[in-house]
Write a protein that binds this DNA or RNA. Structure first.
Lengths: 346, 346
DNA sequence: ATCATCACTGACATCGATTTCAGTTTGGAG
DNA sequence: CTCCAAACTGAAATCGATGTCAGTGATGAT
C-alpha cells in the first residue's frame, strides 16, 4: 500500500505538505505533489482518515427486508441523496427480528456517522442506546415507543387505514376482514386502528375471526386468507396492511378460485410496480416511497452537518392516497350505492 | 468516546492487556477487565482496528438497480451469508451507468476488503483496476471483457435465450420480436444471441425492425413495444430480456388493448413474485436469484480467508429454467402443434 | 542593506488498537 | 527452599493521516 509518506518522499516534501495539498490548501510544490500522487496511484487510507477525524462518511441503513419493493425504493431514495455527497450506505436487513436488529445496530454504531432505521418493533429499547453513542438516528416508515425526540419520516398510517375503510364502506361492504401487520410496529398498529376504528364509527364491527394479524410477509397473507375462506361466512372484503401480504391474499384467492372482486374485494397498502397489471388490477392505499428515503437521508445529513446544534426533532408525516383499480367493488349481488364510489373521498 | 486506555485505567491493567482480553487471549485479571468494559460501555473503535489490521470487515456491493427485484434478491442472498460473519455490506447503485460505477468503485476500494460487482457494461476497464488495489473482485450476473481471471457467478444466458426461442418455435411462432438489454452487457448480448441464433438455426430470421435493444428499464420495454405495434405487420410473439422490460411490454400491450396471448405471446427473462398473478400469468425464463448472491459472497469470503493463496478463478454458471404460464400460446388462429408444447424441452 | 510581514514548511504529537519484546509472576519439580 | 519453564504483563513502536507549532524563505517597505 502506498502511503502519504511515499508520496512525500517522491515529491521531495514532508507528509504534512502532502496532507495540506490533499485538503486543497496552497502548496509551493503543487505540481511535484500532484505528479507523485499520479505516478504512485496514491489514495488516502480511509481508516487512517476516520481515526483522525472521527468521521466515517458512512450511513447505516437497517430495514426489515430489502426485497420488499417499498424498502428497495426507500433505500434507492436515500442513495440518490448520498450520491452527491461523500457518504456511502452500509445496508442491513433485520428480517423483522428485534434480535437481528440489535446485533446489527451494535456493530454499525462503531462504523457509521449516523443511522436510518425502520425498527422491527416499537417496543425494543436498544435503538435508543444508539444515540448514547453519539450516533444520530432517524426513523423511517416506523416509529419507536419513546422515539419522539428523534427525527422521523413517517406516513399517516391511521389515515391510510381510514381511507381503506371508507372506500369499502362506500361500496357497501359490511362483512369486512383486516389482515394487519405485526401489532407492535407502528404501521401494523396504526393501519389496523384507522381501519377498524373507522368501520366501528360507521356501526360495523370487525369480529375476532375477521380481525387477523400477520407478519408483513407474503406467506402470512396467504395463510390467513385460507383461514378466512374456511369460515362458515367469509368476508366480502379484505384489507391487507402491506404489499407483501396483499400478494399472499391474492395468491390464496386465486388458488381457491375466488372471483375478485365478484366474491371478495381486496384492498392493499402500498402500491406495486405490477399493481395495475395484476389480475385484477389492485386497489391500494399508496404513499411516497422514494421520497421518504430522500427525506430521511436529508434529515440525517442535516443533523450531521449541524452537529451538536441539537435542535428539536423533525417529524415528517406524509399523506397516503387511495388508488382505485379493479380489485374492489360492491359486495356480490348488492346494489352499488349509485356512483358515490368515484366521489367518495377523505 | 471511551477508549481502551480508559478501560485499562479502570481495570488497573495496561491497554495491552485489555487488547489481549478483547482478542480472547487468557488474561489474569479477566473479571476486572470485563467489569470495566461493561461499566464504561466500551466498544473498540472500528477505525483504529482497521488502521492496524488493514481489514475493514466490509464488503462493497455494486448493482445497477436495487429496486430491480432480481438484484434485491441477490443482495439479500449475500447478506444471508455475511450474517454469521463479522462482515457488513456497503451498497451502491450504478444506475446502469459506467461513470457512476467508476466513481463508486474508486471510493469503495479504500473502504472495503472485497467487492462484488454487476458491471454496467462489459467494456469498462476500470473495475479491473480495483484488483490492482489488492481488493478481490467477484462478478455476479454480469461479466467483464478481460474479467476471466476473476471469480464470477453467472447464469447460462445464452441457454436461457435458447430456451425462450425453442418455446416459441414449439408453439409455431415465426414472426418473433426480441427486446434485448444493452448489448454491451453480458446478459444483454448473450440472451439475444441465444434467442436470435436458435431461431436462425430453425430457419427463422428476426428482421431488424423486430430486433430491438432496450436498456433493461421498464420504460424502454414500453416504448419499444409501441414501436412494434405500429409496424404494418407486428410480431406474434415478443421476448423481453429482463423482468423490468417485460413489465413495460405488458403495460404497453394492456394500454393498446392487445390480447395476450391471443394476438401476441410474451415471454420474459427473470421471474417476478407477482409473475403468476399477472394478467395473464407470465411465461418466463427463471434462474436462481437468492442463491446467486449466496454463491458470490461465499466465493469472495473464501478469497479473503485464503488471502494471497491465489488459486485460479472460480467461474460458476447456473442453469436457467422455463416456467410455462399463460402468456404464451400458438400464434392467433394457428393450430397448436399437438401437445409437443409440454414435452418440448432443452 | 535591514527589517517586518506574510506564506509556506517540516518535525512531532496525536487519533485508538495491536503487537513485539523484554521483563515479571506463577506453579511445579526437585 | 530453590530453581526453571511456562504463563502472563507493560512499555513502546506501529498503522496512515492530520493539526500544531516553531520555524524558514520570500516579499516589500524603508
Amino acid at each position: 500500500m502506498v502511503t502519504i509518506h511515499d508520496v512525500a518522499a517522491r515529491a521531495g516534501v514532508s507528509p504534512a505538505t502532502v496532507s495540506r495539498f490533499l485538503r486543497g490548501q496552497r502548496v509551493r510544490s503543487y505540481e511535484a505533489v500532484q505528479a507523485a500522487i499520479d505516478e504512485l496511484g496514491y489514495w488516502p487510507s480511509a481508516a487512517a482518515q476516520s481515526l483522525k477525524s472521527g468521521r466515517t462518511n458512512t450511513i447505516g441503513v437497517v430495514v426489515p427486508d430489502i426485497t420488499n419493493p417499498y424498502f428497495a425504493a426507500v433505500v434507492k431514495g436515500m442513495e440518490s441523496v448520498t450520491r452527491t455527497e461523500p457518504y456511502r450506505i452500509l445496508l442491513a436487513n433485520s428480517d423483522e427480528s428485534s434480535e437481528q436488529e440489535d446485533d446489527v445496530l451494535a456493530d454499525m454504531v462503531r462504523r457509521v456517522d449516523g443511522i436510518i432505521l425502520a425498527p422491527a418493533t416499537e417496543q425494543d429499547e436498544t435503538p435508543l442506546h444508539v444515540h448514547d453513542a453519539d450516533v444520530p438516528l432517524v426513523f423511517v416508515d416506523r416509529d419507536l415507543a419513546g422515539g419522539e425526540r428523534f427525527d422521523a419520516v413517517l406516513v399517516d398510517n391511521d389515515g391510510g387505514g381510514r381511507q381503506a375503510a371508507e372506500h369499502l364502506l362506500a361500496l357497501g361492504h359490511t362483512r369486512v376482514a383486516a389482515i394487519s401487520g405485526t401489532l407492535d410496529t407502528t404501521p401494523g398498529r396504526l393501519r389496523r386502528e384507522g381501519f377498524v376504528g373507522t368501520l366501528a364509527k360507521a356501526g360495523i364491527e370487525v369480529p375476532p375471526e375477521y380481525d387477523l394479524v400477520g407478519d408483513f410477509k407474503e406467506h402470512s397473507g396467504y395463510q390467513l386468507t385460507l383461514s378466512l375462506l374456511s369460515l362458515p361466512e367469509p368476508p366480502t372484503a379484505i384489507f391487507a396492511a402491506n404489499n407483501l401480504m396483499t400478494l399472499g391474499v391474492l395468491k390464496a384467492l386465486h388458488d381457491m378460485r375466488i372471483d375478485i372482486p365478484g366474491q371478495i374485494s381486496l384492498i392493499g397498502f402500498d402500491d406495486l410496480d405490477t399493481g395495475p397489471l395484476l389480475k385484477p388490477p389492485l386497489t391500494v392505499i399508496d404513499r411516497p416511497m422514494f421520497e421518504q428515503g430522500v427525506l430521511a437521508m436529508r434529515l440525517l445529513l442535516r443533523r450531521l452537518d449541524h452537529e451538536e446544534s441539537g435542535g428539536s426533532a423533525s417529524r415528517i408525516v406524509l399523506d397516503t392516497k387511495l388508488i382505485e383499480r379493479a380489485s374492489t367493488a360492491p359486495p356480490g349481488g348488492w346494489p352499488a350505492p349509485s356512483r358515490t364510489r368515484k366521489t367518495r373521498s377523505r
